[in-house]
Design a binder for these strands. Sequence first.
DNA 1: TAGAATACCTACTCATGAGTATGATTGAGA
DNA 2: TCTCAATCATACTCATGAGTAGGTATTCTA
Lengths: 269, 269
Amino acid sequence: MHAGRCCGSLGRGLAARGRRVRRGYHTPGGRMSGRRPLPLAAGKRPPASDSPWRASRERRRDREIKREAVIRAAARAFNRKGYHNTSLDDIAATLEVTKPTVYYYVSNKEQLLFQCFLAGLEPIRAAFREVQDLALPARARLNAVLRHYGTAVASEFGWSMVRAEDQDLSPAMSRHIKTLKSEIDQGIRRLIREGVQDGSIAPCDPKMTAFALAGALNWIAHWYREDQSLTGAEIAEAFVTIFEGGLRPRSASQSATRAPLRRRVRIAR
Amino acid sequence: MHAGRCCGSLGRGLAARGRRVRRGYHTPGGRMSGRRPLPLAAGKRPPASDSPWRASRERRRDREIKREAVIRAAARAFNRKGYHNTSLDDIAATLEVTKPTVYYYVSNKEQLLFQCFLAGLEPIRAAFREVQDLALPARARLNAVLRHYGTAVASEFGWSMVRAEDQDLSPAMSRHIKTLKSEIDQGIRRLIREGVQDGSIAPCDPKMTAFALAGALNWIAHWYREDQSLTGAEIAEAFVTIFEGGLRPRSASQSATRAPLRRRVRIAR
DNA sequence: TAGAATACCTACTCATGAGTATGATTGAGA
DNA sequence: TCTCAATCATACTCATGAGTAGGTATTCTA
């Protein structure tokens, strides 16, 4: 005799139904998508497919697939509710399993965040590798990296990648993540320096410029959840255009000086 | 007979000494600075002065000063450890008082974050007001706002302002904060539109451009704690320069096309 | 100098959530 | 069919931390 797998409403088992005023005012938003390989497929809203557990009853198979499903579920939950407002019970419930099952695939919550972080970061690192041997001026290579970067940040792992904070992690993990983030930062700075040298990028402070570019792109993770009117790729493209051109017009005769001075009076808006 | 005010080591009272692996690996970093008016005085590392409680025993006075000290202590703690990793006991301990004392000045933790948020935001709103009647092209007015913006983000309230997330707050508070943030966003967009119209800003998508600018500046809050080699004002200035000019060189004969193609071979780095 | 506020503390309650002990079920291979 | 390992559930433990009850001390006011 076993309990059967009917979801919910066991004595208290799956727990955490009917909390208090608890956060999480984002709507449900589909369950898991188990099949495709983990390192993100960006685009807009991921197709809400099913939990591998629900889909197939075969055990002993799909270990890796299930593990990835756990990570992906975590990423979505973090994305919606933040790291601290997501409990492992939440994640388990999303997958229609229980918390120990989640712990069967990952050792702890911190690891879960870390895996999400890696999943988000990987395509960016790949972009650096891809771009390394291209016969292009540095600015073009930088742009290519930034495009991948922006797309990654807009992916379902974007939040986890960008917001995986030292503040939330053990010192060891914190160092590890900082190292990886620093790699990216240094990569961007190097491309900027190369660009300044080969003349494809205007003279600038590589460090501050890298901070500005990465910051603008990182911030996508904050507003993309609310405003998905563009795909990650489209946003990245728009940003690259902005970075390239700058605010000051490029037409001759510096139009800033031509610009009409503003009336002093304050008019109704 | 009363317990006296000797700190710590009561049966368990002040609690939270000697936790587990608990986060918070940032060094101490002075206590409170009570005197100056709240809405931030940016600059570099705030002078670690003393708790008003420690400084003066006169009660019934300085209520507002103490309240501000609580808020400022909270801002610093959030800045160092994040909202969720900061307990009200931590904040109280910093001020050398107990948790109920903190609750005597603020109603709850969410309010505390909200007050920090407001304190961070205020100088930005002030900047918009200041700039409103200046007889300058829109780009110059935008730059002025961005300078204040960057300085505010680098202030001790920067983290709270930038990271006050809907995810951590009640729906009502979340809406309130979103409204205020949206005001700023719309203000930037408007300046951009005006700039495009008066010719001081190159034609662009105001929405995406505003996102890029604000994102770059917001992100300062993430790295400024670790790297205070420049003041907030210096960073803001550097960013404005970057935004204005863009990556593409402005010298005649578009040097991008002149730029040497990169050798295909991969050389050791 | 007796209330009345004000300001602050001790000592709780209580819910949450990370993580675990232990056992049941199932499929694969001997 | 028997065993073993993989997989997953029930039902816990335990620490944390938000928030409170109720009291004490201090200063102001009448």
